[in-house]
Simulated scan of single mutants.
Amino acid sequence: MIEGDLIADPISEAPLSLHQRILSDIEQNILTGRWPPGFKIASEQQLALQYGCSRMTVNKVVTQLARAGLIQRRRKVGSVVLPQKAQSAILEIYDIREEVKATGEIYSHRILSRTVRPANSQEAELLGILRKKPVTDITCLHYAGEQPFCLEQRLINLDAVPDAGTESFEALPPGPWLLEHVPWSAAEHRIAALGAGTTEASYLAIPLGSPVLVVVRQTWRFDHSVTSVRLTYPGKSHTLTARFTPSQAG
C-alpha cells in the first residue's frame, strides 16, 4: 500500500498520461502540505504496483521531483519530502482581497478585458513557451471601497492551466482562482517604483506620472510557467512589508 492518500489533478479534466498523473498526485500532496517535510513517500516498487506501471516510469517521476527540490532520495531510506522554500519566502503570494480587507474597506473587483489569443514573441519568451501558443490575457481592477486599489495585468499559459481558457473570473478574481486550481512550485518577484503611465493613471484615477509601486510576479509548476502578472498600486496608498529573521547560514 502507498503511504498517504493520493488526490487527483485539479488543473484539468483532460486525460493525463500516466507519468503526468503520478507526478501531479505526489506534487499535490507535497505542495498542499498534506505530506509535510520529512514524510517518507512510498517506494518506487510500491508506486509501480499502485499505478500499474513500470518501475522505470516511477523512477522518472521521482527523479523529476528530486530535481525540483520537492523530495530528497536517500539510499536505504527512500524518498522523503523536503521543506519547501516557498513557505519561508520573504515575499509571499498574497491575496489582494485580504490586502484590501486589512485596510478596513470592502473589497470588489471588475474585469476590464479578457481575451484568449496566441502569444506574441515577447510574451512567449516571458512565459518560456512557443510563439502562438494560447494564453489568456486578462486585465482586472481591484477596489478598496469605491477607490481603485490595484491594476492587475496578467497572462496565463493555457498549456499549464487549460481551464483558464473558459473561466470568466467574474466570481473569483484571477489570483485566488489560480491559487485554488494550480499548485505552484516556484515564484519570482520583481519590484519597482515608477511613474504612472496613461493606462495606469486612467484606471487608478491618479495624475499622469504619479508614483506607483509595481510588482511583477511569475510562477512556475516544475519547469512550466503558469502565469506572469503585473500588479500596479498607487504609491501613496500602498507599502510593501516583509518580516524575516536572521539567516541561519554560517
Rank of each mutant, 00 (worst) to 15 (best):
I2R: 08
G4R: 08
D5R: 14
P10D: 10
A14H: 10
R21L: 04
L23G: 13
Q28W: 08
L31T: 01
P37F: 09
G38E: 07
K40M: 10
K40C: 08
K40L: 13
I41Q: 06
S43Y: 02
E44R: 11
A48R: 11
C53Q: 10
S54Q: 10
R55E: 15
T57C: 11
N59M: 01
V61F: 11
Q64Y: 09
A66T: 11
A68L: 04
G69M: 04
R73Q: 15
R74G: 01
V77N: 03
G78V: 03
V80T: 15
P83G: 12
A86F: 04
I96K: 09
E99W: 00
H109S: 14
R110G: 03
R117P: 10
N120V: 04
A124H: 04
L127G: 12
I129R: 01
I129L: 08
L130N: 08
T139G: 01
H142T: 02
Y143Q: 09
Y143K: 07
A144D: 09
G145L: 07
Q147P: 00
F149G: 02
C150A: 14
C150H: 09
C150E: 15
L151Y: 02
E152G: 14
L155F: 05
L158D: 10
A160C: 07
P162Q: 02
G165H: 04
L172V: 15
P173K: 09
P176V: 04
E180I: 09
W184Y: 15
E188C: 05
H189L: 11
A193E: 06
L194T: 05
G195K: 04
A196D: 04
P207S: 12
P207M: 14
G209N: 01
G209Q: 02
V212H: 03
L213T: 06
L213H: 05
L213M: 05
V214T: 09
V215Q: 12
R217E: 10
V229G: 13
T232C: 12
S237G: 08
A242C: 07
F244G: 04
P246W: 09
S247L: 07
S247E: 07
Q248P: 01
Q248E: 13
A249E: 11
A249D: 11
